[in-house]
Design a binder for these strands. Sequence first.
DNA 1: CGGTCGTTTGAGAGGGTTCAAATAGAGTGG
DNA 2: CCACTCTATTTGAACCCTCTCAAACGACCG
Lengths: 167, 167
Amino acid sequence: MLGLYKLLADGRRQVVGFLVPGDFLGLAFGRTYVHTAEAITPVAACRFPRARFMGLLEEFPALERDILSRTSNELAAAQRQMLLLGRKTARERLASFLVDLAERSDADGGPLELPMGRADIADHLGLTIETVSRTFTGLRREGVIDLPSAHRLVVRKPGELARIAAC
Amino acid sequence: MLGLYKLLADGRRQVVGFLVPGDFLGLAFGRTYVHTAEAITPVAACRFPRARFMGLLEEFPALERDILSRTSNELAAAQRQMLLLGRKTARERLASFLVDLAERSDADGGPLELPMGRADIADHLGLTIETVSRTFTGLRREGVIDLPSAHRLVVRKPGELARIAAC
DNA sequence: CGGTCGTTTGAGAGGGTTCAAATAGAGTGG
DNA sequence: CCACTCTATTTGAACCCTCTCAAACGACCG
């Protein structure tokens, strides 16, 4: 898993998203589209020279349609995240994040993997490490989730979690 | 000018962007990509039936490349906004917003138009109307900007404004 | 078993919100 | 042209959620 983030001059960081196997990285068709990537788990990547990739796009129109579809989905996700960052409480942010993660995960009901650290989650949700930790603890106390370890999570009340997410 | 926004069930609102003449609205190539649009100034729009538009994409590959470029730019803007919403202070958010607006405006140094109301600005920056107003007043007091009226703004110290934006 | 890093917990402070009221501005009818 | 009304904006004061600073705890690793 990869974390994509942007930085301010003084070090403040915003994780704009996490990439899973099969995702594309570094696509830039407009003017600019730059962020930094950091591996969260060991990663194998496939690199295309820019010109070669553009050639592939010319050759296979279906590929361009696929890229457009992926970019469009990323945009939709970014706009959902804007709603989260601009208008949701810490509790709602963490719940939304966990619902997203659970949806993308293949394990139904089984323990959910949280490969990223609390700092990555905090910088993704516009919070501090401490608030993320306290909010985890709160949800655990209420029996909504269980945290067997810091990087392993079980959703005990999916309906309740979705309700808290407030989407 | 159009405002695009998303809503939570209880009415909280996030303005994900503003559209100016020439922009596209309603493009959805991925799974979902839905928000609401509201006219801020009188607007003339050109509507394409979905099937017809898809046909145009097939017929003119350059159009599809253009759409991809636009979507890519929108994604980059969304990610900048995520950094703003997640990590910037009220002061920095408003300054960033004004810098963006000034860059997109054709008037150099001349009075900048703010067609949207304080509520739209607040919902775009993840703040309240009151905080937006107070922050405007603060910048005006310091001589960074001038506000001849609520919807007309002059940037007196562009360098200072850009410094405050903290990008 | 000791050391280091990441996470959790605690206490106090602060930036932005909330609630409330004053002011300004735009439109309307006399 | 002015008085009136309605809405948007500004200003004020108290509150609160989250942040900051600090320390304890725990897990992983050598």
